[in-house]
Design a protein around this nucleic acid. Sequence first.
DNA 1: CCAGTAAGAGAAAACCTTTTCCCAGCTAAG
DNA 2: CTTAGCTGGGAAAAGGTTTTCTCTTACTGG
Lengths: 347, 347
Amino acid sequence: MASDDLPVPVFSKPVTLRDVAAQAGVSVATASKALNDQGRMTAETRERIRETARRLGFRPNSLAQSLLRRRSFTVGLLTNDTYGRFSLPLMSGISDALVDNGVSVFLCNVEEDPRLGQMHVDAMLDKRVDGIIATGKRIDRHLPVDLGNLRVPVIYAFTQPDPDAIAFVSDDADGARLAVEHLFWLGWKRIAHVTGPASFAVVHARAQAYRDVLIENGLPVTEPLLGSWSEAWGHQAVAQLFDRKSERPDAVFCGNDQIARGVIDALRERGLGVPGDVGVIGFDNWEIVAEATRPPLTSVDMNLVALGREAGLTLLSLVGGKPAAPGIRKLPCRLVVRQSCGHPLDG
Amino acid sequence: MASDDLPVPVFSKPVTLRDVAAQAGVSVATASKALNDQGRMTAETRERIRETARRLGFRPNSLAQSLLRRRSFTVGLLTNDTYGRFSLPLMSGISDALVDNGVSVFLCNVEEDPRLGQMHVDAMLDKRVDGIIATGKRIDRHLPVDLGNLRVPVIYAFTQPDPDAIAFVSDDADGARLAVEHLFWLGWKRIAHVTGPASFAVVHARAQAYRDVLIENGLPVTEPLLGSWSEAWGHQAVAQLFDRKSERPDAVFCGNDQIARGVIDALRERGLGVPGDVGVIGFDNWEIVAEATRPPLTSVDMNLVALGREAGLTLLSLVGGKPAAPGIRKLPCRLVVRQSCGHPLDG
DNA sequence: CCAGTAAGAGAAAACCTTTTCCCAGCTAAG
DNA sequence: CTTAGCTGGGAAAAGGTTTTCTCTTACTGG
């Protein structure tokens, strides 16, 4: 009669607790208690109700539960770098930690737009998220949104936090130490540093650690070369480092893997072998670059997945009511050794 | 008295419609109607209620609204490639489209684990998502989860769909045509094809289009070289193509940008200039690679952001009750011209 | 046989909002 | 003056679950 031949699927109604109770011949109260292991009733009744629920495919409506419990088992993940190289592993770690604990994640990309940010935060609050994690692509930049005085706990990861919030960042000084000490232990003596622009806080943190390690070990310090984060800059920097009259470096600590790649390419073009003549180390351990480089690039990994995981777990504990001291927690980096720095045995 | 000096923030209670109604001296029913532009009342009453709500910072509880409306303004985004190169722009497009329409996105990474997948789908259903979008990193692989016969509409994007579902994929044949025709129009005559492994469906689709275009234009067809998606393979392929006695190609259509980069590097090492001696074109338009290549790489862009956006909008229309025909929709690609193929004027 | 207690199960409130229905009071037409 | 119709606003149900409270029945000990 009706035009039922159109492909308009009619979706079956979800089965409710009421349905289960009716089928099992008990009240909804009893049914609820049976399924939640609450209250007192004969084992027989409990099992009968459970069996009915199973048979009907009953699944409790989370909305109703959340409304009552005032807890949604959902958190908001705010970022201004959806889909960037850094926030990706970070988000992966965060969402793993949360999902493992039965918490779902709302993904919100706020770009650089404060209005968009406010909108998202409001929407998340309206949906009664249990907490919020803010992440970014730069440690030294704020998200364009104010997360102070919210009704829920907030954690910052890899982004500039509010003054007395809890934040997780990578320890860039530690990473730089790892890199330079690695070069030193392998016997390289004149270690240069080619890195990104001065506008990044990490550039200064790493440069300082670089100087510290050189001085501690009695090696000559040359001023870091600041430029951009690109391969092209790595290329250029090699020209600067190897054209000059003064003593040329025998190793280069690069601010990221792209620079390192540019450096290696430029060295090859001048007939200098890596790691035969010059040792090169990168930063970020961006695998797709580090592994495609010839030779594969030794690099510093910021452990972003672990950092994200830590942030997620901390938020969960906060949501659970456990207090935590505000402040910035710096997590150590990790060296990933491939072939671009040579090997102790190569002496 | 109590140990109030511990940093345990006490979060203020949200203000409810009841609070607003009480403050304004009306019933909750009237308050609701005032705020939603429903019902009849004096303009004065309506404005008074609104002002009260504004003053109290009232925000309706989405949970309660969703429960009542049976619609949560939330959709689930399922992927087995969180944080991969393809799903990223895809997800970006999807979430933009949804967020623009006031819909929030649950992000779920199912890896390759069917149990995890089922868990996520169940959780999403429990939270009463309005719909689900499934994305993947390969057009020719299923997500490890069954999305047939769900209570909500499902859209597939860049992943193998269920038989009679709605899916969006890129038109790989179209992309390959664009690439090969571009090379042809620029005057290259002996066009080779270096691509990925035979296990990928796109490899065959593109190879066929490559052959078709060559034949249509009376150019000699050489068998595509199948390998891996890596720079290293690009390198190797150049050896195969240029060491042989028979006529050497004057242009290479590469299966992705990494291969293209390997090809260009290898050509340079043999003293062949790009685009002076050989034209090279990539696929994927992975900007960070394409732009860092010397010379910058002309490449085919699969328009994944647009594809995601389309998928998001279609899901929304489905959720809104509009029927849509099942089937696979192939979206065209786009050529991004940089410098690796030369230029008509260079003739 | 009676009081006291425990077990088993249901009724109802609570979470918060939306919507339908209804009521009281008033005006205009007959 | 009656009837119909309109106006402003409230009561109550609905949505699905959890939890507290209450009630009935049966059993135990004296």
